[in-house]
């Protein structure tokens, strides 16, 4: 079941004449979804369109059954969605707890509920006594956690997180990723995590959408993208490996020698039989053949390269 649906959405920024979204059509399923793409791919534009903060020139958008392109739809869906902006944003002059209480009140919580919920989410994100200090003096990591807390305070079913680990040190990044993982998998929230950090998506998301130049390059479960690539194998063997390597290449199979001495071989057939045939011919003993795991980065780069080639 999908939580977000976009059909042929176009958004152009008139000043730079940049086509941020170029006929984007995508469906975002429930669960934790990563929105990947290089800088300028249109990720933040997409998130803002989903909240009605930006109006597309063409196309249809639907978030949990509400249309952010209409006024009524915007107000309804903003109760159902929590948004963590990318840029540094805070309400000047307020403490952390006052900020979260105010935004909870604006979401429709009563005074009493807003205060108790604010403390609960601030506890959850790990902001302890700092919550009583003005936010202007906070570190980047604390501000990021505050942004996550205010997005959570009204307990929305869908969270739009824009670059949640931006500017964080390794410990802060790990903590933020743990929170996102818990929200997506422990708390059953639907997340749309917008980032250009592939490792973040690989760690926290079930599904990935790759954007580039305002278009969808790939949309599939993370497992499918980072899963086993049956046509690439890692071979451990003993004997005359140099001759074996040359023979494999002569049969049209690209071979790379790895640091541990094993060979990464790209098969030309559906099975590994040719490996054994060549090994027998060269007098090499094969000790193991394992499917080589491709990384999300590799898939991402391949998708980008394919787009470049098409262009």
């Amino acid at each position: 079941m999908s939580v977000v649906r976009l059909q042929s959405v176009v958004k152009t920024y008139p000043r730079g004449k940049v086509r941020a979204l170029d006929g984007l059509t995508v469906t975002v399923p429930q669960g934790a979804v990563g929105l990947l793409g290089p800088n300028g791919a249109g990720k933040t534009t997409l998130l803002k369109i989903l909240l009605g903060l930006i109006r597309p020139e063409e196309g249809e958008v639907e978030v949990d059954g509400h249309k952010p392109t209409t006024r009524a739809g915007q107000l309804q869906l903003r109760q159902l969605v929590g948004y963590m902006p990318e840029s540094d944003c805070l309400i000047p002059g307020q403490t952390g707890v006052e900020t979260v209480v105010l935004l909870a009140r604006l979401s429709g919580l009563s005074d009493k509920d807003a205060l108790s919920r604010a403390h609960e989410v601030l506890d959850y994100v790990g902001l302890e006594e700092a919550r009583y200090r003005p936010v202007e003096g906070w570190s980047t990591g604390m501000k990021q956690r505050l942004k996550l807390a205010q997005a959570l305070v009204h307990d929305p079913q869908l969270l739009l997180l824009d670059e949640p680990t931006n500017g964080l040190d390794p410990a802060g990044r790990r903590h933020m990723l743990d929170l996102i993982l818990d929200l997506g998998h422990g708390r059953g929230k639907s997340l749309l995590v917008c980032t250009h950090l592939l490792a973040d998506v690989e760690r926290t998301c079930d599904h990935v959408i790759v954007l580039s130049k305002g278009r969808v390059l790939a949309s599939s479960p993370v497992g499918a993208l980072v899963g086993e690539d049956r046509r690439s194998v890692r071979v451990q063997a003993s004997g005359d490996l140099r001759a074996y390597r040359q023979a494999l290449q002569a049969r049209g199979m690209p071979v790379d020698t790895q640091e541990d001495g094993s060979l990464a071989v790209r098969l030309t057939a559906e099975d590994a039989d040719p490996l054994f045939e060549v090994a027998l011919h060269c007098g090499v003993t094969i000790r193991s053949v394992q499917p080589q795991r491709s990384s999300l980065e590799q898939s991402f780069l391949e998708a980008l390269a394919a787009q470049e080639a098409q262009a």
């Binding site: 107000l75 009140r105 979401s107 205060l115 609960e120 506890d123 006594e129 307990d155």
Partner: peptide, 30 residues
């Protein structure tokens, strides 16, 4: 809002959000 620690843990919220109320009041108070 006095400076004391709260021991609550985050949990699902079961209340309903008020969708009709004029919302300028909290902005004025803040």
């Amino acid at each position: 809002m006095k400076a004391e620690m709260h021991g609550e843990t985050w949990r699902p919220w079961s209340g309903t959000l008020d969708g009709q109320r004029l919302r300028f009041g909290p902005i004025v108070r803040a």
